[in-house]
Design a protein around this nucleic acid. Structure first.
Lengths: 116, 116
DNA sequence: TTAAATGTATCGGGTGCCCAATAAATATTA
DNA sequence: TAATATTTATTGGGCACCCGATACATTTAA
């Protein structure tokens, strides 16, 4: 594996700010990622890490997946040594509702941010 | 004061979903609201409540304001019995950084939500 | 068959958000 | 002045998120 970036000037330009806490919305983000494509725990953590700048650790992601499974919003299927998670029908509906809510609360904030 | 809605069919159509936890981002949201105009605690809670569907309680909003004050991101000025909060210069910078981060993490999600 | 690597899962400890209940300070009204 | 209303603030308890460390299961390599 090559050493991280140097030639890659893009890298991640943006990390969690120290002005305010930016935790939260993990389960929401998991549902959204899984709506794009089914994934196992690690890939999911990586995808979320791509957006957040830092990937959630095992102690964060797996309890969240367990919770969402118990709520019947996602379901996991063993494939070899990994567990691939998929949105359930209930999960799709939930994500839709949650997305509308998220839009209502935050869209104005997003719109004041001009893309780089 | 007139009784709440009945003729007003709009009201709030959207509340926190039960599919996933939507807590978090409070201090971020406070900074954003204060960037629109200086406010006291109650008005701030009402404004946030307008977006979220439910307003944060005193036990939520005042500790957050205290924290932000200690971090020198906002500053409060007593006006009669209320304390009017304003963004500090540091707070403005912080909000900008935080907004860029928030955009990076969530803009795709926002964009998949078609406005009602 | 061991050994190493990969992926899943749990544990203990910490923080921010969240509430209802309560208290305290200030301003207004009686 | 005394009672009421308004606003601020704290307390105690709960939960989701977050981490590093550790353990376990399974697959692959030696």
């Amino acid at each position: 594996m090559p050493e991280p970036s140097e030639t890659e000037t893009e890298a991640e330009e943006c990390c969690p700010p120290d002005c305010c806490d930016m935790r939260g919305m993990l389960s929401f983000q998991i549902l959204w990622e899984l709506s794009k494509k089914p994934m196992n725990g690690q890939e999911l953590a990586e995808q979320i890490g791509l957006r957040r700048g830092t990937a959630p650790s095992p102690g964060t992601i797996y309890p969240a997946l367990k919770e969402l499974t118990q709520k019947n919003l996602i379901s996991g299927e063993k494939k070899g040594r990994q567990v691939v998670y998929t949105l359930t029908k209930e999960g799709r509906v939930g994500l839709e509702v949650a997305t509308r809510y998220f839009y209502k609360v935050f869209h104005e904030i997003i719109e004041t941010a001009q893309p780089p």
